[in-house]
Nucleic acid binder design. Structure first.
Lengths: 337, 337
DNA sequence: GGACTTGTATGAAACGTTTCAACCGTCTTG
DNA sequence: CAAGACGGTTGAAACGTTTCATACAAGTCC
């Protein structure tokens, strides 16, 4: 029942184990005749190389770990696709782990990855400060931070410029003639939310005049929160009500959209809307949603390339921080009234 | 730089390597005093167990592989969550692989998993007939088929009853008084599409009388296909036009919904709609969408449990095929006109 | 024909664990 | 007090590879 080992293959092909190993790793160094003999023996026995033994002896694996906050979130799955593409191109395999925003869970996965002796780790950490991750880096495993704005000395990072994203959205709404603009999102503690708001605020401030940005704080970035934000909006005096809302997230924007239309307000005529993330359903909404798109696959690809670079260069590697620019996609929800 | 080994820990704690190993694996078998001494040595040296060596010597890993068709698809990520929950509960780690519907890619991942000597594999195969997978089973790695209706002798499988799902949707529409019902979906070659249609057809046939099911064939299950199906529907003579449409998929239903409302038809008053999959956005649509929900997490959980069972029982294991029942979620889109 | 090279193949020593028979005190029991 | 049981520890042999120094044979060159 047990899978045949290199030894049995060697015996069947009447060569030494060293030769079998050579067929596996440096086929050009063995004569065509014996090579074929060995290959035949392998397929006859159904030989499958034992990666554990290989990793143990050679001291290196062909694996990198990717730890994301939520596999259910299209943002991360797209990032994962980019990572896989880059890893694939250099013969690496990606172990995808889902921390589910849970600290202990993240820790378990990190332990596992380190025990596996992965070549490197890509991670969007649950907490920015993570002593455990620090230890892993100290022990010599390269780590690249994904979508995390804290620029540390001892690791590379890639992220998208959320401040710029906020600015783009707000500038667009201002250009459409809106003066009373709202930013919806929360909680404030999420750095993405804070940054997007900050960018929007800066744009509004620069516009000068009577332009103003109000803040509709929400408890989360969910669809339901969007509906509540809609109710809140409807309660305000129509004369002072914002004519445009920039939402920290598409889900929020979709909830808001539904609440507004259900209550008889028209989008974009009464209220213009811009979301963030450009999820698939943004274009498919009742009123197609304008949104800020992040280069998700590209983000993953570059992160993986940075990691591969570090793995290659070892000690001599100089850490880098790459910041991507988001892009505004204009659709019906923010057309000029 | 290299991570400390058990040997160095043993030296620092002045015990034998055997004792260190015992601390790791059977802590109750070593006296509290030495145990503490070893533990201290470990943390002082930053010891991290080498999983390769462990796996090599002990002959077993603590890993199972999960190969899905598309990590971007919420169906599979929910299934993955269920798998992880079950694996977690018995101390297993899941390696998540994305075949992306690509045969060669799937094969690479399977090779990798087998080389890693995973304890078992959960897979939704790209092709039903897969000789490579067959070989893996023959060599002794347990495999459980996920969401795949072909019941083979040499492996367990779990799936959801699509015929029943189709029947539930159609029976609901018939109960609302509809007689001219349409099924939208395609291509026919997808077994899920064929099964759902079959179930709906059976229900309509049983209803008898003038009840009839027409077929709106679509080239794919996308949002855009839904819009085209809407156009098609609008072109038919209003007197003979179906008053209800059951879509093979929510995305399709959402496209259809948007096209119909854009052209002035009201849902559910003029046309009732039922989708399939109950994706997050179904409830969030302009008109909340009735849909057939599959027990996705449960599917993954049971699949993993079946696999764990087989790993446990070994030769004596009897393969089983579990079929789940889907559930209809009624919302506004199919309310009685 | 001796001294190199070149191309292949070999054998044994690692890699870091787990496992297990053996050992040594100390305690219990009849 | 002898015999056995028990709790704790040890040492060495595996596990299946890779790696490397070595060996051998066949050319090549002066």
């Amino acid at each position: 029942m047990a899978i045949a080992s290199i030894k049995e293959v060697a015996q069947l092909a009447s060569v030494s184990v060293g030769t079998v190993s050579n067929v596996l790793n440096r086929p050009e160094a063995v004569s065509p005749a014996t090579r074929e003999r060995v290959l035949n023996a392998m397929s006859e026995l159904g030989f499958v190389r034992n990666e554990s033994a290989r990793a143990l002896r050679s001291g290196r694996t062909r694996t990198m770990g990717l730890v994301v906050l939520d596999v259910t979130n299209p943002f991360f799955t797209d990032v994962a696709k980019g990572v896989e593409a880059a890893a694939d191109a250099s013969g690496m395999i990606v172990t995808l782990c889902n921390s589910d925003q849970d600290g202990p869970r993240e820790r378990r996965y990190l332990d596992h990855l380190e025990e596996q002796r992965v070549q490197g780790i890509l991670i969007t950490p649950v907490e920015a400060r993570n002593p455990h991750l620090e230890q892993i880096i100290d022990r010599g495993t390269p780590v690249v931070l994904l979508d995390c704005r804290t620029r540390k000395r001892n690791r590379c990072s890639v992220a998208v410029d959320d401040v710029l994203g906020g600015r783009l959205a707000a500038e667009h709404l201002l250009a459409q003639g809106h003066r009373r603009v709202a930013f919806a999102g929360g909680p404030r503690s999420i750095s993405q939310v804070a940054d997007r708001r900050r960018g929007a605020a800066a744009a509004v401030a620069e516009a000068g005049g009577e332009a103003a940005l109000t803040f509709l704080e929400t408890p989360s970035l969910s669809f339901t929160s969007g509906r509540h934000a809609g109710e809140q909006l409807l309660e305000t005096d129509p004369a002072r009500r914002p004519t445009a809302v920039f939402c920290a997230n598409d889900l929020l924007a979709l909830g808001l959209l539904q609440e507004l239309t259900a209550r008889g307000l028209r989008v974009p005529d009464d209220v213009a809307l811009v979301g963030y993330d450009d999820i698939d359903y943004a274009a498919a909404a009742a009123v197609p949603l304008s949104s800020v798109r992040q280069p998700r696959e590209e983000l993953g690809k570059v992160a993986a390339e940075l990691l591969l670079e570090e793995i290659d260069e070892g000690e001599s590697h100089r850490h880098r921080h790459v910041l991507f620019e988001p892009e505004l996609v204009v659709r019906a929800s923010s057309a000029r009234p």
